[in-house]
């Protein structure tokens, strides 16, 4: 195997596994930009993925699966929005509760179905809709051809969503209002913006997108349910860190995903890399446990650096995590 091929495989693996992270991150950015710190990403991705997968298998349709994942994720968001916006509960507590709740529902359904858990192979058109596309000449470009132009359609959907979300937040009037709510709800309120509506919409859309990320993971894992681990496997938590790393910009999150993904994929791809580039043989000497810990170590480092470094163009919404009550003095 030559170097170009190995690198191509490596980049392919980085994108194809970690794109779920992008769904989670963009969803969380939409939440946080409206001032809601939603810590339920992990749970919402798990339960959204489970819902979408089951619906996809029973209808044998990718469209139904996407819709289902979005709705199931959105329902979790509706719950979060009702508790934090309408009932003014603490966002951190509710977010963590939703994670616990989502994971519990995930295991409840998965274990409850037991042997009856649907297999992806039984729903051929659903399975095929996930398969990598072939863009002809583009896919034949060395190194990046397969990695960039022969991915599953859901990969391109994620990138499209990120770009649309980025343009929405930065360039549209509605996006301006969302940012206003996240920065200073009092000011937005006095300018006549309906805070509740903006928050509900953003939370529900954001969590719906997280649900899509869960669906992506379920398909990536081939729909195999294991009683011990979730499909998300901690990705939801990393998405929250990635939001900070990407400075609350959805388009920057695309690149952030690739950088974070590098560390996720290093373990599984190291043999391919060593095969083509023998000077990387030190990679195999690092214990596997360290590889599994690596993404989380990187996350911790990123969080430390970004909280120490406070530059002027920090995009963090000022009113993040704070509930707004008009008559509060």
């Amino acid at each position: 195997m030559d170097i170009a091929e190995a690198l191509g495989l490596f980049i392919f693996a980085i994108i194809s596994y970690n794109i779920a992270l992008l769904y989670g991150t963009v969803g969380e950015i939409l939440n946080e930009k409206a001032g809601s710190l939603n810590l339920g990403v992990e749970g919402i991705m798990a339960v959204g993925g489970m819902g979408g997968y089951l619906i996809g298998c029973s209808t044998d349709s990718m469209f139904a699966a996407l819709l289902g994942a979005f709705i199931v994720g959105g329902l979790c968001g509706l719950l979060f929005a009702f508790l934090t916006v309408t009932l003014q509960a603490n966002q951190n507590v509710i977010g963590l509760t939703i994670t616990t709740f989502g994971l519990a529902v995930y295991f409840f359904i998965g274990r409850g179905l037991g042997d009856k858990f649907p297999k992806l192979a039984d729903s051929p058109s659903f399975q095929n809709a996930f398969k990598a596309v072939d863009m002809g000449a583009l896919s034949d470009i060395p190194v990046i051809g397969k990695a960039l132009f022969s991915q599953s359609p859901l990969v391109y959907l994620a990138i499209a969503i990120a770009i649309v979300a980025g343009v929405f937040l930065k360039r549209t009037k509605a996006g301006l209002r969302v940012r206003a709510v996240g920065e200073n709800p009092g000011a937005a309120d006095s300018a006549g913006i309906n805070i509740t509506a903006v928050k509900y919409t953003n939370i529900i859309c954001g969590t719906g997108i997280m649900g899509l990320g869960g669906l992506y993971l379920s398909l990536y894992m081939g729909g195999s349910f294991e009683g011990s681990a979730t499909w998300t496997n901690g990705l939801g938590w990393i998405a929250i860190a990635l939001v900070i790393f990407a400075n609350w910009k959805p388009i920057a999150a695309i690149f952030g995903t690739l950088i974070f993904g590098l560390f996720f994929t290093l373990d599984t791809s190291k043999l391919v890399l060593i095969d083509a580039m023998p000077f990387l043989s030190f990679l195999s000497k690092i214990p596997t446990e360290l590889y599994s810990a690596l993404p989380f170590i990187i996350t911790a480092i990123v969080l430390i650096i970004s909280s120490v470094r406070k530059h002027k163009n920090n995009n963090e919404p000022s009113a993040i995590g704070l509930n707004y009550f008009r008559e509060e003095r």
Partner: peptide, 11 residues
């Protein structure tokens, strides 16, 4: 009631 990070026009 102004948003510090926004320009005057955006406010």
């Amino acid at each position: 009631k102004l948003i510090e990070k926004f320009t005057a026009a955006d406010n």
